[in-house]
Simulated scan of single mutants.
Amino acid sequence: MADRNAPKKHGKSGDAREERLKAALKANMARRKAQAKARASADDKADKDEG
């Protein structure tokens, strides 16, 4: 219970966590962008095959 009132430490570990989160977000966005590009490419190919 005493830990709830203790101030949170912002220091080197906080910066490291922020850097890890930033890198994970960047990788996630790149992966999503690649997936969207692949889906769009697959849709274009499907449209050309039908028509």
Score class of each variant (00 low, 15 high):
1 M>A: 07
2 A>K: 03
2 A>S: 09
3 D>N: 06
4 R>C: 12
4 R>A: 14
4 R>P: 06
4 R>G: 10
4 R>T: 10
4 R>W: 09
4 R>S: 12
5 N>Q: 11
5 N>W: 06
5 N>V: 08
5 N>M: 07
5 N>F: 04
6 A>D: 09
6 A>L: 02
6 A>Q: 05
6 A>I: 02
7 P>M: 01
7 P>W: 00
7 P>S: 03
7 P>A: 01
7 P>K: 00
7 P>C: 00
7 P>V: 02
8 K>Q: 14
8 K>P: 13
9 K>H: 09
9 K>L: 10
9 K>Q: 11
9 K>A: 13
10 H>N: 13
10 H>S: 13
10 H>M: 10
10 H>R: 07
10 H>F: 10
10 H>C: 09
10 H>D: 12
11 G>H: 01
12 K>N: 08
12 K>T: 08
12 K>W: 06
12 K>R: 10
12 K>V: 10
13 S>W: 02
13 S>V: 10
14 G>I: 05
14 G>L: 09
14 G>A: 15
14 G>F: 08
15 D>S: 07
15 D>Y: 04
15 D>G: 08
16 A>L: 11
17 R>C: 08
17 R>I: 13
17 R>D: 15
17 R>Q: 14
17 R>F: 08
18 E>C: 05
19 E>R: 05
19 E>K: 02
20 R>W: 06
21 L>C: 07
21 L>G: 13
21 L>M: 11
22 K>R: 15
22 K>N: 15
23 A>K: 01
23 A>L: 00
23 A>G: 01
24 A>R: 01
24 A>S: 07
24 A>C: 01
25 L>G: 06
25 L>K: 07
25 L>M: 05
25 L>P: 00
25 L>V: 04
25 L>A: 12
25 L>T: 07
26 K>N: 12
26 K>E: 15
26 K>P: 07
26 K>W: 03
26 K>I: 09
27 A>F: 00
28 N>G: 10
28 N>F: 04
29 M>N: 13
29 M>F: 03
29 M>A: 13
30 A>F: 02
31 R>E: 15
31 R>W: 09
31 R>T: 15
31 R>P: 08
32 R>M: 12
33 K>A: 15
33 K>S: 12
34 A>W: 02
34 A>H: 07
34 A>S: 13
34 A>E: 15
35 Q>W: 04
35 Q>S: 08
36 A>N: 13
36 A>H: 08
36 A>P: 08
36 A>Y: 06
37 K>A: 14
37 K>M: 11
37 K>L: 12
37 K>I: 13
37 K>V: 11
37 K>F: 07
38 A>R: 04
38 A>L: 08
39 R>Q: 11
40 A>Y: 00
40 A>S: 02
40 A>P: 00
40 A>F: 00
41 S>G: 07
41 S>I: 05
41 S>K: 07
42 A>S: 12
42 A>L: 10
42 A>N: 13
42 A>P: 06
43 D>S: 09
43 D>T: 05
44 D>T: 01
45 K>G: 14
45 K>H: 12
46 A>Y: 01
46 A>N: 05
47 D>Y: 03
47 D>S: 11
47 D>Q: 09
47 D>W: 01
47 D>I: 05
48 K>S: 09
48 K>P: 04
48 K>E: 12
48 K>M: 07
50 E>M: 01
50 E>Y: 01
51 G>C: 02
51 G>I: 05
